[in-house]
Amino acid sequence: MLAIYIVLMLMIIGAVIAIEIKSLLSSVIAVGAVGMGLSLIALILNAPDVAITQLVVEIISVIILIRATIKKDLPESTTEQRVMSGVAALVFLAALVLVGIAVFKEIPPFGQPIMRVAGEYLANGVQETGATNIVASILLDYRGYDTLGEATVLFTAVLGVLTVVRRQGKKSEKSGGGSDHE
């Protein structure tokens, strides 16, 4: 179990680097390191489906983020930090600590899940669905509604991206607005 703590420590270090480094490209690559750590932890904790999916999703998300930052390596903001955002951050982090303390009293200890529902799936899954990968049988048979909702959200997100990057209809908006010359 020492491996988990080492990888978790690496993830936290990667997150701190991603947040505090000046160069945007280095920040994005550090986020890639955090995602690889998550994939490794899923592999160590016997979740191979999550590990494969996280690995490939990480690659494609780093590609998208690098395309967004390349050749636009702007320095960090020079404007002063406002007091309000600092106060908001403090309030949120204090609330997080309070909720965390309350949750850690109730949560089952690490390595002993409750599994009231999942035990049923594991015991009867092969007879009821015929799939030997229990995660697939939960995803597409027992809880198909979740996957249907996921497909809807993905469709909406693709539609949103294609609408935002659309170039038609941009000309008339530009001649009317012209706010980018201010």
């Binding site: 999703v57 599994m115 229990i134 939960i138 979740d146 949103g160």
Partner: peptide, 25 residues
Amino acid sequence: VDPLPQALVLTAIVIGLATTALIVA
């Protein structure tokens, strides 16, 4: 191990990628 959180997080990963792409756009 418990398969139910793994199945839930599998959908969350793909949704997270799609929303990240929307924010980047």
